[in-house]
Write a protein that binds this DNA or RNA. Structure first.
Lengths: 233, 233
DNA sequence: CTCCGAGTTTGTCGCCGCGCAACGTCCCGG
DNA sequence: CCGGGACGTTGCGCGGCGACAAACTCGGAG
């Protein structure tokens, strides 16, 4: 637990954007901070949802494990967002697991503080619901894509989204800012690692992406957009 | 617009469950009621979200139309639920269209009343967020199913869900309580009407369902459960 | 340096399910 | 009673993508 956190770290983030400095101070003083190794669990599906988190740094993967045993990656969360707010939506237990996709830093609060936050800090609630709204929206998009798009388009869209959310400029293109395997992409797009591997190879041959082990650099984003959207080449 | 609505109609519904009679009266007096013919629009994707609705009777289909032109059915809403609450989640326009799958009856309120409802009626907010939570949850399930399940399993699960949500007992089984075509099921499960037709035919031959034009009766629910879940026959 | 395992690539094969097309059937309106 | 249109069924062929298999490469531990 870090004792004195700097307000400026979180003041510009959506949930706190509209709050006063003293209010942010109050909120911060009730938080505990935690470091998560790459691959470790922030929380686990089915556990009692006794805490909610703010992701300060790193990327968190939200995963659901099916009765059948295979897992599905529901989304990646970039820094600055709240996670584990299931309890706010009336669930007593986490509906999915959250894994640190890279080394991650979080703040955590006990769930019982949630109601107070919402009640006391006007903007907090609004911004949070807006975030939930965006997630719902994106989920709908994903569903629609899953239902109608071909595999190549889905994978292209998936890579693009991760670049948009977490991409950092690098020589020759934009890189996805956390370690990601073909398997991971397969679990996001509902296909197999084999197919993803083939697609990336083909794209690399066409000069759209470059990929090293666990790293992907997009060199021609506009080409990827074409691949994801209007099916024409 | 119907002038005097009976509180008992809506008092037991989730959003109003915890409210007092007088409060419900207040809320009702601000509502306008509307009848929707089968197939007509309750609201349209992209329109300004200036109203939210409570579905009193009938079933509403939530549809998203993709840039490509084809449409996807995101969910069916059974009576008693709120719809069009996009504005509450920070969206200024409806993210999807809502069509009456059968003749439907709704209450409508102007969006500007939302904030007041949430603030004034304690339980209203809680119950609403719980509903949103359930929708998110189900969406996650759907995603996961889409990503991992075979077509037959998805279609079986889809039929089952509609039976659970809106099924009514009928001689020889349980019937889905609103008109539904093969195309509709195809648009829900991300396949084609041809495949759905074949599946239903096969199931009918096996005595699991009976289907008339636009109507489906499930005669052996447990068999359908098998088809949807543990792939073993 | 060497070993080992995780991650990746590539090939082959087979099947599911989509596209297309034609026909059958029911319902509704004139 | 008849016609037309929407809905449903069925057959056929092809192709994408998943299953299986085997080899390669990288990186870290000892």
């Amino acid at each position: 637990m870090v004792r004195k956190l700097d307000e400026s770290l979180i003041a510009p983030l959506p949930p706190f954007r509209r709050l006063e400095r003293t209010q942010i101070r109050e909120i911060l003083d009730q938080a505990t901070s935690r470091r998560h190794d790459e691959g470790s669990e922030v929380f686990r599906s089915g556990e009692e949802a006794d805490r909610f988190f703010l992701l300060l740094d790193g990327v968190v993967r939200v995963v659901r494990i099916l009765p059948g045993g295979d897992q599905v990656i529901l989304r990646h969360i970039p820094p600055g967002q709240l996670i584990g707010i299931a309890s706010a939506l009336g669930r007593s237990t986490y509906p999915a697991s959250a894994l640190a996709a890279s080394e991650a830093l979080t703040l955590a609060w006990p769930t019982r503080l949630w109601a107070g936050f919402v009640q006391r800090y006007e903007g907090f609630a609004t911004e949070t619901w807006a975030t939930v709204g965006r997630r719902l929206d994106q989920l709908h998009d994903d569903m629609a894509a899953m239902a109608t798009q071909a595999v190549e388009q889905r994978v292209a869209a998936c890579v693009l989204r991760m670049v948009n959310q977490t991409g950092r400029p690098v020589e020759g293109g934009i890189e996805i800012a956390f370690p990601i395997t073909r398997s991971n992409i397969a679990e996001m797009t509902g296909t197999t690692l084999h197919t993803v591997s083939r697609l990336l190879s083909a794209w690399e041959k066409d000069g759209v992406v470059e990929s090293r082990r666990k790293h992907i650099v997009v060199t021609a984003p506009h080409r990827l957009v074409l691949l994801s959207g209007a099916s024409g080449g």
